[in-house]
Design a protein around this nucleic acid. Structure first.
Lengths: 178, 178
DNA sequence: TGACGTAGCTACCAGCGTTAGCTACCGTGG
DNA sequence: CCACGGTAGCTAACGCTGGTAGCTACGTCA
């Protein structure tokens, strides 16, 4: 298992801003705007631009947090050697981490991926458990796509009402447990 | 195979507006705004509200079009009885239809699903091919999630550069080919 | 003391969805 | 023939968005 990449260094004020942004994003129905973020910190919106060049930069900082936590959860699920195969354990951990933080997950996975602005190696490290569970890069990507599709459809509430999501996840795991 | 549901009836002017909206959405990098949409029609933005109550209503009309076309493509792929199993044919058709109209696909599948505002039966009809290809509702939802995950990750360009997507789709199809 | 960087402020900009209120046209009934 | 109502356009405006310019107060260091 590769070591987790080190997060980007931030000043204390920057860390406070990211923490406030996270509070807003996790709060139900809270859209992240620069004015709301500033209000949460007791300052005016333009002052935020002394610390982050754009709103996108704030979002990237949140994405970095989310990927670190998701990666840690996935690696933990595989190293924990609980009962069941690697694929079901991986999917369970993925679902728990993502659905537990739906807004953060959506933020981190919608729109183009800010690969260049993230710590090098973070993406590979977070995705490594899929490679470990499948043994093949293409199968790993397919399994990841399945997990991602299941999560986004679940948190966007797109499955028809009355769906048995537990069994749907099981069916997905069964397909990839060879 | 169930018959395709009939689309919602629209006045000619409404149809023109939806067509213009589609033109904008399909044009590369074109975000749909009421002012742009109005300009495309040679009128002012507030006039659009004589025909559609909100911007969301225009989007729903586009979603209806997208679902009808996607459903037709999927049903066609299964009834065509080409070579290969049902699952690979279904996934190929899904990928082709979605990636060919990325902006429309994203519009139709991001955010909450406007189930109540769409023609009754449309959702079930468009999803029916997944049931036909798998024979089980939960497996169908899982396969659909896989296809959706693959598509959104592909059109958002989130796979690491150099990925062999052809083989990734094949790996997904193989997992679900019983 | 003077210079410089930090971190706040107010005032403002263009663009967004949307509303209010007005106007011109067009078909129909008295 | 003329008034009525519906249709479909218009301008002006509101409150929100991300973002910029330019000012100010404060702390540090030569």
């Amino acid at each position: 298992m590769t070591a987790a990449p080190s997060p980007i260094r931030r000043s204390t004020r920057e860390a406070q801003i990211v923490a406030a942004a996270r509070r807003i994003v996790e709060e139900e129905g809270g859209a992240l705007t620069m004015r709301r973020l500033a209000a949460e910190l007791g300052i005016q919106a333009p002052s935020l631009y002394k610390h982050f060049r754009t709103k996108h930069a704030v979002e990237v900082a949140l994405i970095e947090q989310g990927l670190l936590e998701l990666g840690a959860a996935l690696h933990g699920a595989l190293s924990g050697r609980g009962r069941g195969g690697m694929v079901p354990r991986l999917l369970t951990a993925y679902r728990t981490a993502a659905v537990g933080n739906p807004a953060l997950y959506r933020l981190a996975t919608s729109g183009p991926f800010p690969r260049a602005e993230l710590p090098p190696g973070l993406e590979d490290w977070a995705g490594e458990p899929f490679l470990l569970a499948t043994g093949d890069p293409c199968r790993a990507q397919a399994l990841f796509s399945l997990a991602h599709g299941l999560v986004v459809l679940e948190i966007d509430d797109r499955f028809p009402p009355g769906s048995d999501l537990r069994r749907t996840w099981d069916a997905g795991a069964a397909a990839f447990a060879s």
